[in-house]
Amino acid sequence: MVSGIDIVLQGVLLGGLYGLFAAGLSLIFGVMRLVNLAHGDLIVLAAFVILALVNGLGLPLPLAVVVAAVAMFVVGYVLQYVVLNRTLGRDILPPLLLTFGLSIFIQNGLLEAFTADSRRLSAGDLETASIALGGGLAVGVVPLMTFATAVAVIVALNQVFYRTAMGRAFRAVSDDPVTAQLMGIDNRRLFALAMGIAMVVATIAALFLGVRANFDPSIGPARLIFAFEAVIIGGLGSLWGTLAGGIVLGVAQTVGASISPEWQLLAGHLAFLAVLLVRPRGFFPRAID
């Protein structure tokens, strides 16, 4: 019984990480209907940027994350403004193929720069610290922080979306880009801002990715798949739904892993396909796409 609760609890906390992976993807899709196939690789890129700042420049981890977030914001802004904006349109083939090409480029670029070795971000004693909940249950501090951060990120994004002028512009462009332009909104700049913000979220995700487990240049696509599954399970267009989707995926994976380690990934994918069968639009759909 206790072990059952433990498995679900760990799964929920793992879902926080997947929610973080997915929040950026969900944001971009919500604003400009772009599915960024390089999202996972951009998260891994952010993790390597943090690593390089810590190891290369000797920055303390929190400062390195802030610097990396600023750098990734610029990367996202420029990428969207210079490259991706040119491909947005009715046809979804060009942006999809372009981001797939970008994914291959980033993966192999990282491989060339950092080799295929597994790396890890060091958070000192925090990594192994845990809080006892009584009854033999304990949760790690890092997983707990991951989950809390995921909630905080989603609260913050929702505040931006519903309380600021920029958020209003985001929603307007999302609903009707042509009319939004007539109202004086510069779509290109706005899309670039959205991508920049998504990359900041990706950097936060990268921090927890790197502290919780090993990473290497090849793991991006798998993170993209988890993020994507969380978005679909949760329902398009809802950030809280995305977190819920991450939790469903996380629980399915830990339950699968408790049966056999080989079943962890398979159980997650099967849960995704099962949701697709019974609720093709996810649990909390908002957008109609």
């Binding site: 490259v83 193929l97 372009l98 797939f100 090409g101 970008l102 994914s103 291959i104 480029f105 980033i106 192999n108 670029g109 060339e112």
Partner: peptide, 8 residues
């Protein structure tokens, strides 16, 4: 990397 860049 070159293939990815060419595709882009």
């Amino acid at each position: 990397m070159l293939l990815g860049l060419l595709a882009v």
